[in-house]
Amino acid sequence: MNGSDRLWVELALISYLTGFAYSVYLLATKKFLTPGVSFWAICAGFLFTTMFLFDRGHAIGRCPITNRFEVLVFMTWSMVLIYLLIGSTYRLSLMGAFTAPVACALLFFAVALSPNESAVKRIKVNPWLEAHTSFSMVACGAFALACIAGVMFLIQERQLKTRQPSSIFYRLPPITALSVVNSRLLWLGFILFTVGLATGFLIGGHINWLQAVWSILVWCVYGGILIARVRHAMAAKWVATLSIVAFSLLLSTFWGIRFISERPSL
């Protein structure tokens, strides 16, 4: 990673931390003003990660998802991109307060755990491999945001059930809106993940069966949640819970996945 790369990621990390800290400050002081500072801090963080991906992509001549560091930055970028699209559509401004810490955590892991990973330059680029990894990463971003919507849903649900709504209860979006957003993000993630999975089988060459089986397992879990949702066989509370569990599963096995950098040269 060169100095300029590190700078973009560090600036993004500072931006997300600022957005998160400001949201916490607003909630702690009960000054429920429009969280404009948080929103713009998240926008700045998004811009910095975009700059990193652009620079890195330009340097290596391909989509920058060649090592853990890049994957974490790309996943953060995808998640924030979907937040910026979905969040404004559903006016879920406070979702930023929940998205920013996740973005901080992902970038922190990127910087702290993969400090010296350098970009892998490939001479020949396989478009199926590019499509596979890009779609899969953006799907992870959608699943991450579905998980965040699920957490927000469960906070609201708990406050309603205990009949002791706190001040945050009135600042979070309505529980039905969170349920709708959660479902739509699951659908979006599932569609992208399906495309990513399908293109993975078109890459050719050696197939990492461990990775393939794991990916199909994740696909089945999300598919199962959505089937239950469509058939109304599962209450919104359980869909929210499972979207958190499924994303935790995705993250916990994340380190076990062999990235494309480790694949044999194509």
Binding site: P165, Y170, P174, T176
Partner: peptide, 25 residues
Amino acid sequence: SATAITRGSVSVGSVAVDLARQIFG
């Protein structure tokens, strides 16, 4: 604007409406 003295509802009817809005929008 600087304090929370006007925040929330203090009658049964308005508390019910606030809760309904947090469920349904």
